[in-house]
Design a protein around this nucleic acid. Structure first.
Length: 701
DNA sequence: GGGCTAAGA
């Protein structure tokens, strides 16, 4: 079977090229076998004698499944010669010579071993997806091949035809093209953009069902709502078709927040003489491959998250897909036989309006975490503003990251990483959360902070698993959750987890309370991992036990909130004087509402708290603060003070002149409430005036 | 009164 893969005909050529070059780009379409065969080719040709071959994947499932297949082909036990490493799971041994891993895991490894000396070859697979981590790795590899000129080979594989760009990035390294095994896909365009792509997809789907021979239909939509609409409409229409006039149909939704048992339904073969309609988000573009698809309906849209560094706000926008994405979608129809792709837009739009490639994630995200990571690598010459990215993020975005890091003491006024920053980088968390943990450790509430931070890492656990129709009834049936005691969502998360802990981590308890079992289990895993890392780096032993029946006190909540305020120093908001909207501090001011799902409540005067920190500012239908925590004004003052004195030019100089000792002094200083005394009178009086106005307001009703 | 595209440590 493996012998038939196209890539194997090029074995000699591949080896020859690798021998003569440190970096090689391999372009291989789906079905070329590059993910499974490249590592084996290198293994056969002696490249695992002095080190392992690493193959990175953007996704966990891919790392596991490809490793499993290679182990089978080599007839070895998985975890022996062939293994994998993903978060929470390391299945490798001393004998492992081919190791599949997620790009995130490789990044973590390079923290402790920046030269990645255990590897003789590093293959960055699926680089065309341009995940944030892959982009960072690309930059690091460029540096590494110079340092390890004699004993490291780097292969970059991509499915798209544009290897030229990556090649230029690596000093015009050679590009090898390996043909794929896709069947031809016939493309049909609409003459116009439809007014409603749900209606238009529906019509097209029925058309196919009535006129076209058997084969499953994959329909790309932008989100869960549209998918649910589409599924119910399609079900209705299909049922109304005269019996016997066409084959049976099964309609399956497919999106990320679907419980796993629903997701796997798309992998079960359908009964004979039955056509399946899979209504999916872009999860079916790359993450999940559905067999049996012959027809694809492509709306030409995708929901995309983008970050605005000027306001610190994310937005979730429906945008046009790129030509690469459109071709990827079409390709889903040609995996098992020739297929057809119906594009609900004219070809002129495809050619003239669609961008050629998707904007890489690194240009759409907050970079605080990545910048901290790069600063923490023990590489003297990393100047973040001139770091060699394949597609550099904007200066504005990098400066935003530096400001964020400075506000939480991860870097000092000259842009050098602090001791706190180094400790933060060890933790697999966003900087705001790692800072919170370290601060909580000082404030004697580490255990509680671990819980909150883990809950935030698995945000989905709090979302009720929506089941249509009986929603109101379910709300009645489900048991009441704690309410955060008036302190907001973080405290509620702590209370929820503690209750679950007391219930013995019972799955049933989750479903009874309308919580996602998967998310809660993930929370537990994350918490355990964070405990281990904290224990390892701490000097003495830490108290990380959950409260086990003992009720948390207000004082503990307060310590925790104060720790959160330090970690979220860059995500602070002040309530408006005349209404319950908030204004963000520290950015170009942005007005936002507390998210309707928040447990934050108004007081007897109908007012929300004066100051909150928020986990995320996101614009959906409007700007919302998601997951907020009440903080005290005296904690806010030192942050405002710090903001006032912030000098971005000094931060971005990347300086190395400040000794660690002064840095430590600065950090402890700010974490003490004593710092309040130094806060400027200006702010004091301004805020006092604002408070007075609040109090003078007439209560609601 | 409103909402979760996808993925990762």
């Amino acid at each position: 079977m493996a012998i038939l893969l196209p890539i194997l005909q090029f074995e000699d050529k591949i080896i020859e090229t690798i021998e003569q070059n440190s970096v090689v780009v391999v372009i291989g379409e789906t079905g070329s076998g590059k993910s499974t065969q490249l590592s084996q080719i290198l293994h056969r040709n002696g490249y695992t004698k002095h080190g392992m071959v690493a193959v990175t994947q953007p996704r966990r499932v891919a790392a596991v499944s490809v490793a499993r297949r290679v182990a089978q082909e080599l007839e070895v036990q998985l975890g022996e010669e062939v293994g994998y490493a993903i978060r929470f799971e390391d299945r490798t041994s001393e004998r492992t010579c081919i190791k599949y891993l997620t790009d995130g895991v490789l990044l973590r490894e390079s923290l402790s071993d920046p030269e990645l000396n255990q590897y003789s070859v590093i293959i960055l697979d699926e680089a065309h997806e341009r995940s944030l981590n892959t982009d960072i790795l690309l930059g690091l590899m460029k540096r590494l091949v110079k340092i390890r000129q004699t004993n490291l080979k780097v292969l970059i594989t991509s499915a798209t035809l544009d290897g030229g760009k990556v090649s230029r990035f690596f000093q015009d390294c050679p590009v090898l093209n390996v043909p794929g095994k896709l069947f031809p896909v016939e493309i049909f365009y609409s003459s116009d953009r439809p007014t409603s792509y749900v209606e238009s997809s529906l019509k097209k789907a029925l058309d196919i069902h009535i006129r076209e021979p058997e084969g499953d239909v994959l329909i790309f939509m932008t989100g869960q709502d549209d998918i649910e609409k589409m599924v119910s409409k399609l079900e209705e229409k299909v049922q109304s078709l005269a019996e016997g006039s066409c084959m049976d149909a099964i309609i399956l939704p497919l999106h990320g927040s679907l419980p796993p048992e629903m997701q796997v339904r798309v992998f079960q073969p359908p009964p004979s003489n039955c056509r399946r309609f899979i209504v999916a988000t872009n999860i079916a573009e790359t993450s999940l491959t559905v067999d049996g698809v012959v027809y694809v309906i492509d709306s030409g849209f995708v929901k995309q998250r983008q970050y605005n560094p000027a306001t610190g706000m994310y937005s979730l926008d429906i945008v046009q897909i790129s030509r690469v994405q459109a071709d990827q979608r079409a390709g889903r129809a040609g995996r098992t036989c020739p297929g057809k792709c119906y594009r609900l837009y004219p070809s002129s739009i495809y050619r003239e309006e669609f961008p050629e490639v998707t904007v890489p994630e690194i240009q759409r995200s907050s970079l605080a975490g990545s910048v901290l990571y790069l600063k923490s690598l023990d590489v003297p010459d990393i100047d973040i503003l001139s770091f060699d990215f394949l597609d550099p993020p904007s200066r504005e975005s990098l400066e935003d990251a530096l400001r964020q890091l400075y506000l939480i003491d991860a870097i000092d006024g000259n842009g050098s990483i602090t001791r706190v920053g180094r400790a933060m980088a060890e933790l697999p968390l966003e900087p705001s959360l790692s800072r919170t943990l370290l601060e909580a450790n000082e404030n004697g509430c580490l255990s509680q902070a671990l819980t909150v931070v883990a809950m935030l890492s698995a945000e989905t656990s709090l979302l009720p698993s929506r089941s249509k129709g009986s929603e109101k009834k379910r709300k009645h049936d489900s048991l009441e959750l704690p309410d955060g005691s008036g302190w907001g969502d973080h405290i509620q998360m702590l209370q929820i987890y503690e209750k679950w802990d007391r219930a013995g981590y019972d799955r049933r308890w989750c479903t009874d309370h309308d919580l996602q079992v998967r998310g809660m289990m993930f929370t537990k895993d994350v918490r355990k991992q964070l405990c281990q890392i904290m224990q390892k780096t701490a000097k003495g032993s830490l108290d990380v036990r959950t409260s086990k029946g003992r009720k948390e006190t207000q004082q503990e909540y307060r310590n925790l909130r104060r720790s959160l305020c330090v970690g979220y120093a860059g995500q602070l908001a002040e309530r408006m004087v005349r209404h319950n909207g908030y204004r963000t501090l520290g950015f170009k001011a942005q007005l936002a509402q507390v998210h309707p799902l928040s447990v934050l409540k108004i007081d007897e005067d109908g007012l929300l708290p004066n100051y909150v920190v928020y986990h995320e500012l996101i614009a959906t239908s409007r700007p919302f603060l998601r997951n907020v925590c009440v903080v005290e004004m005296s904690w806010v003052m030192p942050i405002l003070k710090k903001l006032e004195n912030l000098d971005i030019n000094k931060l971005s100089s990347g300086g190395t002149s400040i000794p660690e000792a002064t840095v430590d002094g600065e950090v402890t200083d700010l974490s003490k409430e004593a710092a309040v005394a130094k806060a400027s009178d200006d702010h004091e009086s301004r805020i006092q005036a604002a408070r007075d106005r609040f109090l003078a307001r007439k209560p609601k009703k």
